[in-house]
Structures are given as C-alpha cells and as structure tokens.
C-alpha cells in the first residue's frame, strides 16, 4: 500500500488539522490491522462497509472504511508536517515477513 497524494480538508472545524490520504489501492482488513499497530484500533465489522478508527493517544487519529481508496488523519492543530510524514512512511513501508 502506498500513499499517492494527500489533501487538507476544510470542514468549518476550528482548531483541527484534517488530511485525507489517497492510497494506490483499496483499504483491506490486513492494512487496517497494520495501522492498528500504531495505537488503539476500533473496527466495526458488522457494517456493510466496515468503519475503523485508530487512536494514537495525544498524537493523532486515523479513520476510514474498508474498501475505500482514502483514509482520514486528524492531527493536532499545531502538528508539524513531520507527524504526517511519519504516518505516510509507516504506510509506505513494506510489511516484513
């Protein structure tokens, strides 16, 4: 899985730094489980299109739905770009067998 683009989301939410990451292929359960290693994973598998959320305490939240080509990252207001880059690097990193 690779991040091919990202964009800032403006949603009338003062004080929240939201980015959508565009991926080169749809999100799978395995990918969600990989992301889950970053923090606390909540996955709602009963939904037709399962929704997940990964809370990395005091840092950021990642969320999305299995089957979509993008995920959302909610960063703190003052987050530096390095934090986003960390997430992108983690996603782009090949799984070691």
């Amino acid at each position: 899985m690779k991040v091919i683009n990202y964009k800032q989301i403006e949603d009338c939410l003062e004080g929240t730094n939201i980015r959508d990451l565009l991926l080169d292929e749809p999100v799978t359960k395995e990918f969600v489980e990989k992301l889950g290693k970053l923090g606390k994973l909540i996955l709602n598998e009963t939904m037709e299109k399962p929704f997940f959320k990964i809370i990395v305490r005091s840092k950021y939240t990642i969320k999305g739905s299995i089957g979509n080509n993008s995920i959302r990252v909610m960063l703190p207001d003052n987050a530096e770009f390095e934090m986003m880059q960390e997430i992108i690097n983690f996603i782009n990193e090949e799984e070691k067998s």
Binding site: C12, L13, K49, K63, R72
Partner: peptide, 22 residues
C-alpha cells in the same frame, strides 16, 4: 458532527455537511 459526517461519507457514500456552517 465531523465523525458522523465522515462515517456517512466513507461507509455509506452519503454526503452531508458538518461543522459551524459559517
């Protein structure tokens, strides 16, 4: 509200609006 908005969009493909609405 943003969470409800995003769940609707990403899991149901329903596009609404959330926030302060200017």
């Amino acid at each position: 509200p943003e969470e409800v908005n995003y769940i609707l969009e990403s899991s149901y493909d329903i596009h609404v609006r959330s926030g302060l609405h200017c």
